[in-house]
């Protein structure tokens, strides 16, 4: 459904531009425009995913095109939740451009080949598979928010320590807010990751009686899981917060990227997403 996706792209682009403007100019009005166009784009995007689902007959999360589109959708959903809870619009000036780029890639990428569509239909037959991929995509989106929050924390903490405030300083949420966002999203992300890995294992064991394939993607995912677990445990037990926790949030996201893209380059059993 290209025209629909293009409208979504346009709405996201407008939202992205306005959230950057809001960030630079500190304008409330631009913030409102960004929120409304984002909500509009998100509604259309949801519709577009549903029409894809009914049209192609498989869950719309398979192959490059669909994965990017779906990832963008989850990012918007996650961002919406963060905004709702913390009113930290500054996140949008990074998240929304990324969302726009993802939808752009999705709208120019080739559709799935017939072979892929068949494979998707084959895999999609078991209901566990879409749950597995959806959970993981949401986990990635949550980790992306952790990453952005960590970067913001590091930038702002550095300026507070150096006592020289650049223009960015006045535009970021407080350290406490950023810290809360990171703590909340890392918990949510890790839970989703755990569930995603578990459903993957169950699905794979029912398919070919193997829980673990030693596939690069699985290894990276396990590392990611351990790292975020360490981050959560440290935060909870040792009051380990601030800069070090933020650094771990950044490193963790590098691992997430490896899981998402790197594993694909290294080849292996997992298809994508």
């Amino acid at each position: 459904m290209k025209p629909l996706l293009l409208t979504v792209l346009a709405a996201y682009a407008v939202a992205a531009i306005h959230s950057i403007l809001a960030f630079v100019n500190k304008r409330r009005s631009a913030e409102r425009v960004a929120l409304w166009t984002l909500a509009f784009g998100f509604a259309l995007h949801t519709a577009s995913l549903i029409t894809d689902w009914t049209q192609y007959g498989h869950y719309p999360l398979f192959g490059l095109r669909e994965t990017f589109s779906f990832l963008a959708w989850t990012l918007v959903a996650t961002y919406g939740l963060v905004i709702y809870r913390y009113r930290a619009q500054a996140l949008g000036s990074v998240t929304l451009p990324l969302v726009t780029i993802l939808v752009f890639i999705a709208s120019v990428a080739r559709g799935n080949s017939n072979a892929q569509t068949e494979a998707a239909a084959d895999l999609g037959a078991t209901w566990l598979f879409p749950i597995h991929t959806t959970l993981l995509i949401f986990a990635y989106a949550a980790f992306f928010v952790v990453f952005i929050a960590s970067i913001m924390y590091l930038l702002q903490e550095r300026e507070l320590k150096l006592k020289t405030f650049s223009a960015i300083f006045h535009r970021l949420p407080s350290l406490a807010t950023i810290n809360n966002i990171a703590t909340m999203t890392v918990g949510v992300g890790w839970t989703l990751l755990t569930l995603g890995i578990l459903t993957g294992m169950v699905w794979s064991s029912s398919r070919d009686n193997r829980v673990w394939h030693n596939d690069p993607k699985e290894i990276f995912a396990a590392l990611t899981w351990l790292l975020y677990l360490a981050l959560i445990l440290y935060r909870a037990s040792a009051g380990w917060r601030g800069r070090r926790a933020a650094w771990l949030g950044v490193v963790g996201f590098a691992l997430v990227l490896c899981t998402f893209f790197g594993a694909r380059l290294l080849g292996g059993y997992h298809v994508f997403g």
């Binding site: 702002q156 507070l160 300083f169 949420p173 407080s174 350290l175 406490a176 807010t177």
Partner: peptide
């Protein structure tokens, strides 16, 4: 101002 920057509220 600085307190707000660190603690938010």
């Amino acid at each position: 101002e600085l307190g707000r920057k660190v603690f938010g509220d």
